[in-house]
Every structure is written in C-alpha cells, then in structure tokens.
Design a binder for these strands. Structure first.
Lengths: 114, 114
DNA sequence: TGAACATATAAGCAAATCGTTATATACTTA
DNA sequence: TAAGTATATAACGATTTGCTTATATGTTCA
C-alpha cells in the first residue's frame, strides 16, 4: 500500500458526508465557485441553520474552508486537503450544478451579497 | 447534461451506502473476488445477520448480485449496473483489501466454503 | 426424513442524523 | 451606539441506522 493511499476509514467518512444530496450538491457547486451561506439558503430553499450545519460537517473534515468577506462568510473547496483528489474525481462524474447559480443570478438574488 | 450523466439523487444514495466502512470494504473486495457471506463474517468479525443486512442494502440498490452455489450464496459486483463505472472509479482509489482474503486462506477458513 | 449448516428476515433497542426553533456572535451602517 | 444583516451554535424531537437476539427458509447429507 502506497504511502499516499487513502485509508478506508477516512474514505468511508468522506463518502458518508457526500452521501447526502444537499452536501453533495454543495460540494459540486463549490468545486467551481465560491459561495456564501445565503446563496445556499436560496438554492436549497432550506433554513439557514440547516445549511450552516451541513457546512460545518464539511468543514470539520477539512473538505471546505471558510473565509470572511465583510459581513459574509464564503466557503470554498479546500484544495490542499490530502483527500481532495479523491473527492475531485467523484465530483467530476456528477452533472454540472451551474444552473442553480444561474437561477439566482436571474432572480437577482445572487447580487445581493456576492 | 449528458443523457448518461449520473443523477444527483442516485449518486447521493450510492455514496451513502459506500459511506460505511464495512460496506465500502466489502465492495472493494467484491470488485476483484466473489465472496460468500461466511467469508465476510470471518473477515469483519461480525455477526451473520449484520453482514447479511449490509449485503441486502447493497443488493437493493443493485450494486451487487447474489448467486446460490449449493449451500452457499455468493455475492459479486453487479457490473451491468448503470452506475458501475461511477462506483468502480471510487473503488479504484482505495487500497487493496486482498490481505483480508489472504488471512482467511492462511487460516484455512476460506477453504471451508469456497 | 431428520440433523446440521448457510443465509435471510423480523423485532427491538441504542446511537447517530437531520431538521426545527431559539438564541448568541460578529459585522455594517445610519 | 443602536438597528439590521449574516452566520453559528444550542437544545430538542422525529427519523434513520446498525447492531442484537430470535426465528424462518433453503440446502446437504447421513
């Protein structure tokens, strides 16, 4: 087993996180665009705490990172995570979720904070 | 989005199943070898019903198939599943679990049914 | 046919998960 | 500094999950 091989334990815990439609879609979106919490709230029509809790789980495993920009907190994929290549390869096989961001732009909702 | 693109719903449900260390390891082993239930019981030091229930979940989603051979029921990866390429690509990134089967052979346990 | 073996299923329970509501924290701006 | 906005966290309840024990089903073989 290579030194760089993914451990089963860790792989399982990552897949578990990705095994939720909301988090999986979040990750797919984040793979191409940074997003702030309020955007996710719009996209998923979910409550703010619910979104916040999903993001926390992703953050706790180091899959995403946060960055405050004034009033907003932006999330982005953590490309320095040692498991990023593993994750990236999974995300690459999923259909683009860009339409979800486009909808926001058309509604003008995205502009409000981003 | 390509006609063949994986749906987010389905992808999430597959990743959820793989997000369990026992099932993930099972899938990795099955990707190279057929196995019967009693082998998994040995490998994971788990109860027979517990193993059987994990296999059922994998079977319910069409990830594995079963085949009776006399007294035993052998499980194998269902390569005809439309999501097999998706799964295969994930499994390919995991470390080989062949050592687990080797242990059984050394113990002579594998011979008992296979 | 009956005993032994392999597996599946059912029922019940403890722990984990995910959403909700309520509240705390942090920043911005008037 | 107070009000408004964005986000995080806490506490709680409903649902899901994964194990256990008990039992049913199906096969083999004496």
């Amino acid at each position: 087993m290579l030194k760089t091989a993914i451990e089963m334990d860790k792989a399982a815990s990552i897949l578990k996180l990705l095994g939720d439609k909301t988090r999986l879609t979040m990750m797919k979106i984040l793979d191409h665009h940074d997003c702030c919490v309020c955007e996710f709230v719009e996209i998923f029509k979910a409550s703010q705490p619910s979104i916040s809790q999903h993001l926390r789980k992703l953050r706790d495993l180091g899959l995403v990172k946060e960055e405050r920009r004034g009033q907003w907190i932006f999330y982005s994929i953590n490309k320095t995570n040692e498991y990023y290549p593993f994750i990236q390869q999974i995300l690459a096989q999923l259909p683009s979720q860009d339409d979800k961001l486009k909808e926001l732009e058309e509604q003008g909702t995205r502009i409000s904070c981003c």
